[in-house]
Design a protein around this nucleic acid. Structure first.
Lengths: 261, 261
DNA sequence: TTGGTTGGGTTCATTATTTGAACCACTGGT
DNA sequence: ACCAGTGGTTCAAATAATGAACCCAACCAA
């Protein structure tokens, strides 16, 4: 692990619930020497990626992020292209819908929308990094990802997040086969003990997976009819979003899924 | 310059006009060895800060940025707090208004709004990093910044961007004195040969400058009346934004500016 | 075909940078 | 006065970054 990765990795610990992190807490989180962590933090700060709460001296994300996201959106407007589609899907099925992008061997949320049509909602943290093996988005991506992504996921132990989490390589492989057949992944309390979700892969140019669209709902609302309805919506969304991204469905699967719809 | 800074520095070359940059171009831009640059690029890519155009192999900003800006906005909603104020000011004077934040010895744009009430507009690139000595925002910040910021600006030569650019330390110092007296900085073709602007500092807790709000307009529209009107609007905006940021005007100047308004 | 150019990417000995144990300074609690 | 908890710093030792030279592919013109 290079120095750059070690430093950038620090940024991944920030989330909605954890907007500020102090030096000592960081040291505990990453299990590295205090001096090292401190130097990395100050260097990130000098570059505007972090700033320091002047009173608590804790660190939080800095203004450089704002500028970069401005550039990225201005030149490669993913969010604004995705938003109408995601909102449309979410309203159609009445449940929280979100898009995440593959980033190494992990998923990074890009956009979510909750139509708020029910009394209970799934608490989606748009800032949390999602593991590939324990989320429907992740399974959808993994099923179509390069072999080396699967390998790097299996290299580390499959962390158990909830009762349903897949924890063995064999189990994972059979689930992925199923996903490849149907084109959508479903998940029953594998990440959160009260949430079910289904996901479908999104493809870029040349049919490479770039991420996933997925719909999550409280387990109590996950009936068979609803499930089928969601699968329909996802198949549709997968095609629309992939088109918008300028991507192609992998030809070896495309017709099969078409007919299934 | 540490490895982390060298890598993060690469990200600063992306702008609206330059959304994708290839390896060789990067090497030219930063004047470092190809192998080094390549390693930095791949490490940034592995962390999702860059992604590679699969066909041209050029690099562009990656999805990690999206997630981080999501967290930053969710936990520290600067943009959404700023937006109504900035839009209000912009509509009031009918000219492009923007807020930038101090980041090291340079300004990073955070938000801008153009009311589009005239036939000609200032082309504001929200992705371009602004120098402190050649912009009204920069002068406003510099006038109230710590001594070491001024020192680090003077350490490097004062790059000439247009006819009006301040290029000597003495000239700069006298301008900064003037800014401290009036509370606003004005600029006549110092950054772009057709643009005039005025700026006012923004303060955080303890009266430390955190950035500036500024209004830019084509030089042809820069009459004396307009100028006075803009100064009024900026004084007002400075106070409102500083309050919203939970900051304090530096007491040694506050009353002077109050009376001037 | 050949040779030249420009692009991306890689190798490995040399070198310089990162690292971490121990240290200091401050704050709040007892 | 002491301890435990912060954040932050130092300097010799070890590790990781560096860069000259290299390879490969695509493109172009003779």
């Amino acid at each position: 692990m290079g120095t750059i990765t070690k430093a950038l990795d620090l940024l991944n610990f920030f989330a909605k619930q954890k907007p500020e992190i102090g030096l000592t807490e960081f040291v505990r989180l990453v299990n590295r020497d205090k001096a090292t962590v401190h130097r990395h933090l100050t260097e990130l700060m000098e570059n505007g990626f972090l700033e320091q709460n002047p009173v608590t001296r804790a660190y939080r994300l800095g203004p450089a992020i704002l500028r970069l996201s401005g550039v990225r959106e201005a030149t490669h407007p993913l969010r604004s292209v995705l938003r109408p589609i995601v909102e449309d899907i979410a309203r159609q099925v009445g449940e929280l819908t979100h898009v995440s992008l593959l980033q190494g061997d992990v998923l990074s949320p890009a956009l979510h929308f909750d139509p708020m049509t029910h009394g209970t909602q799934v608490a989606f943290d748009e800032s949390e990094i999602l593991p590939l093996h324990a989320t429907s988005s992740g399974l959808a991506v993994l099923a179509f990802a390069d072999e080396d992504v699967t390998r790097s996921v299996l290299k580390r132990p499959l962390t158990k997040y909830a009762d349903g989490t897949i924890t063995t390589a064999d189990e994972l492989r059979s689930v992925l086969d199923e996903v490849r057949r149907t084109g959508t992944a479903s998940q029953d309390r594998t990440f959160d003990s009260e949430v079910c979700s289904q996901g479908a892969p999104l493809f870029g140019v040349g049919g490479k997976v770039v991420g996933a669209v997925s719909i999550a709902l409280p387990a109590v609302r996950d009936t068979d009819e609803k499930r089928a309805e969601i699968r329909e919506a996802l198949r549709d969304g997968m095609v629309r979003i992939t088109q918008q991204l300028g991507g192609d469905l992998p030809p070896e699967h495309a017709e099969k899924w078409q007919s299934a719809v």
